[in-house]
């Protein structure tokens, strides 16, 4: 197990090289001159030249890339062209907000998705099942920003029970609406997958054996069926956390949440290469780590899977 994890972590190196190269090249291909973004319109060519030289923007891309990677190896994520402050500081400021919001959203997704999936599978074709099917369809179809605004209007403005913007003092009340909005689509998907996975499992022979053993229906569903049915759902939940952190831009915008999604988005618009690179790299790390956690958690859910063992799987 330890060897397997070490091996997986070593895979970070080629991934980081690949990801940085792609982002670097993409930023170069994009039209627009980062130097121009820094000055007012109508700045003289001399000024632009000075800026280019200051930030090394006049060098070929591979020299810039080499320099960037060299600094990265020394723990230096570079300095934001736009904000004139170290990228690492920006990461430290915004990432925790995003991660915290994503974790709350993930909990909502897991609890609501798994629970409604189980209920609609066990009570198949019942009123509850139909209700879950209809509401998940609506959730998936609804644009996130619109759903977010609905939440703001109803809970914030009409009933005035929850704050609708910003993080305030950081109390849990500020998390509720953005987390629900962020979790909405994924919760619907989780519920659907949980339902179909559960339906498949409760038809298995060992479930009938469990019934013939005299176990209660509750124990059969929550012990024998659930652990088997969870396997595909865990994959989704693990990868969802990454998406919830990095792609929350709509939710962050509607709720004025100081998260990393907006930072990356604005940095792309402003050709702020160091910020885009730094923030994306962290996201890549998070994804790799989540993937690893998902894979390791499989071994606890399904004993037939042994990591690093070629015979199994």
């Amino acid at each position: 197990m330890f060897r397997y994890i070490a091996k997986r972590l070593l895979q970070v190196v080629p991934v980081v090289i690949g990801v940085t190269l792609i982002i670097f090249l993409l930023m170069f291909i994009l039209p627009g001159d980062p130097a121009r973004m820094l000055v007012q319109k109508g700045a003289s060519p001399e000024v632009l030249q000075v800026i280019r030289e200051k930030y090394g923007l006049n060098q070929p891309w591979y020299v810039q890339y080499g320099k960037y990677m060299w600094n990265l190896l020394h723990g230096d994520f570079g300095t934001s062209i736009r904000f004139k402050r170290p990228v690492l500081d920006i990461i430290k400021d915004y990432y925790p907000n995003s991660i915290r919001l994503a974790l709350v959203a993930l909990i909502i997704e897991a609890v609501a998705g798994i629970a409604s999936g189980i209920i609609s599978a066990v009570k198949r074709h019942s009123f509850l099942d139909v209700l879950v099917t209809i509401s998940t369809t609506i959730l998936v179809a609804m644009p996130v920003f619109w759903f977010a605004m609905l939440l703001q209007v109803s809970f914030g403005l009409k009933w005035d029970i929850l704050p609708i913007s910003g993080m305030g003092d950081g109390s849990w009340r500020y998390y509720v609406l953005p987390a629900i909005a962020l979790a909405s689509v994924n919760t619907a998907f989780t519920a659907r997958i949980m339902r179909s996975s559960m339906l498949e499992v409760i038809d298995c022979n060992y479930i009938w054996v469990a019934r013939a053993k005299g176990l209660s229906e509750r124990k059969i569903i929550l012990k024998h069926a659930l652990k088997n049915a969870l396997i595909p759902v865990i994959t989704i939940l693990g990868l969802d956390l990454g998406t919830l952190i990095g792609s929350a831009i709509l939710t962050e915008t509607v709720f004025s949440w100081p998260g990393i999604g907006r930072v990356i988005y604005l940095a792309i618009l402003q050709r702020d290469v160091p910020v885009v690179m730094g923030c994306t790299l962290i996201l890549v790390f998070i994804f790799i780590l989540l993937n690893l956690i998902v894979d390791v958690s499989y071994t606890y859910l399904d004993p037939r899977i042994r990591l690093g063992d070629r015979r199994a799987v």
């Binding site: 022979n205 053993k213 088997n228």
Partner: peptide
């Protein structure tokens, strides 16, 4: 439930799928 598995027990056809794999 107090009878199943206790007073009347059953062995099923296919042992490869009758035990819960996890």
């Amino acid at each position: 439930q107090t009878i199943r598995g206790n007073k009347i027990a059953m062995i099923f056809q296919d042992p490869t799928t009758s035990l819960n794999p996890v």
